[in-house]
Design a protein around this nucleic acid. Structure first.
Lengths: 189, 189, 189, 189
DNA sequence: AATGAATGAGTCTTCATTCAT
DNA sequence: GATGAATGAAGACTCATTCAT
């Protein structure tokens, strides 16, 4: 990684940490610069504005989720197994990157995130949607609008990770399997 | 309702609308005052600070959810029926009060909402938790930590309402029943 | 004292306390009203404005000093004795009414106190000035402008009372005599 | 002096002038900025808050007094001469820097000035106190608590400078000597 | 390319004063 | 006469962004 890329990366990383720690409005550019060890102008060299910085961060984190969700994904495996693989990957990714999760949780709704970024983030669900479509075609899951299916099946994921990070529950591999089973039971026919 | 209560109410209502429309940081007190048709100082007569205003709003909206979730609730009805009643009430309440839902969605995580307010909001789940405890005792639902159960069963609710309000899906009474059934299937034994 | 006079008096007394405790700008009319046990409008019934209230207070406290400084004053006594009498009275008055002293100390310079009020306060020194004039005429004190004489002789008074109230020194009747002697020695021929 | 130091200095100088002219509460940061020819944010770059700005100013002015009071001070000169030297220096310093004097006069009492700053300002009197201690030891001055001695001897100084600046008297070198003599006579044995 | 001092519009908040009851 | 809710102008302070070095 070149020096420039390193600097860009450390700015994004610092932004992530500070925004999660203090909130978007309490993470001034001056603080980000100081904590990242660069001058304020340097940030503006890589990112035209704070809004842009936040949106780039959002998209990179979404991209990372995207790249991890299909780890060990076998397109020929049975539907139920493919479902479990994706969901397991998501759980693990979020638990491994709590800051990413908290940032995405909190700012997915924010007006700071542009519609374009939101649309980008939505592409995340392309493969699962495909999976659900197959599943419905094969009458493995309930008959209902595809979106409904996806929203129902994915909902517990965020809720549980949040519960884990706020210490309401303690997720381990066993409970994760229990949880995914519940997700599956919610939609399976 | 006295004049004073009316003014307090209109301030809260205006705040709700503006904060949901523009976000917390883009809803200045001056704008709230103008839109509420009062002087800025008047807001400070009823609420010591913006943070307090937001927290009071949060608690009042949570309180309204609380009061509606147990409508037609029969403590002697079968567990599954009681579950459906609460979930149905919640769906209807949120769909009827979209601003309430969006505000609670967005600011439940925010650092502006104090731990005290969050704890207050959490009392919302006392009765469902009781219900789940009974259900588990009677082996009607899966064996897992109570919190996990609750987080799983409640997750789709928020997700679906959000999907509905963002026009990804169109919830009607039929789909609501389908959704609640999915929630139930997720946890039922 | 009539009810109205009592109310007026309690407003002044409360103002004195709060202004000394918190400072002029941190003693809002609303607080004065609350602590005085009256409505805010009531204050405005007795005093047209906050500035006026402060000026009236200033003049009443000055007036009280004036009335006390000549206690036991014998116009026929020797000059030195008359000097001691006045100075002793002043010391005792200020030590007995520390709030009065602190208020006069702090706000004599303030732009809030009008020139008119300051002029009123200055009349306090009419009799001592007369005394000094006599003293000079009889060559009891040094030859210098009258004002200079007065400023020199009166200066230690405020300084010592302030030192006493801030616990730098502990004035008692003995030290007060020592102090007045010093004042006298400063100007005596 | 670097550009940055110059800016800091002009802010302090402008603050001094405006605060003395209008009073602390009538010298808004916006006015200080405008008169200093800088942006408001610039002030906050050098001073974290208005209170801090005022305290720094206080300490710098006190420091300047400190540095001037011992000009031509000969530690081996007779006590009386040393006393005259310090007092003369103080008179001249204050008359030369009337704004400094008025600021210190007015805000030494103010709650805005922190105890720390007041303590700093008090160090000003270390050398005179030493002098008085010697003087007392050599029985040159009256027997009384040291603080009392100092408060008595220093009191006319402020009073006279104030009188001069408000045109009640007109101090010249001759009257200054007369005044210092009076101060000395007040405490000499 | 990198820096960070400088900017000033935009926030929250306070408080003297008014006036309907 | 008494009240205190209502007002809004004014103040301290923040922070995204620019630009001279």
């Amino acid at each position: 990684m070149s020096d420039e890329q390193k600097k860009r990366a450390i700015i994004l990383k610092t932004t992530l940490r500070l925004v999660v720690e203090h909130g978007l409005e309490s993470a001034p550019m001056s603080l980000i610069a100081k904590e990242a060890g660069v001058g304020m102008g340097t940030i503006y060299h890589y990112f035209p504005s704070k809004d842009d910085l936040i949106n780039v961060l959002y998209r990179e984190l979404k991209q990372a989720v995207h790249e991890n969700m299909l780890r060990n994904y076998d397109y020929n495996a049975p539907i139920r197994e493919r479902f479990f693989t994706i969901w397991r990957n998501l759980f693990h990714h979020y638990l491994k990157h709590p800051l990413d999760f908290l940032f995405l949780e909190q700012y997915s709704i924010s007006p700071t995130i542009t519609l374009e970024s939101k649309a980008f983030g939505f592409k995340l669900w392309a493969e699962p949607m495909q999976l659900f479509e197959n599943a419905q075609h094969q009458q493995v899951v309930k008959e209902m609008p595809l979106y409904l299916l996806m929203l129902i099946a994915s909902a517990p994921l965020n809720n549980l990770v949040r519960g884990h990070l706020s210490n309401q529950i303690k997720l381990d591999d066993g409970l994760i399997e229990v949880a995914i089973t519940a997700c599956w039971d919610a939609i399976k026919r």
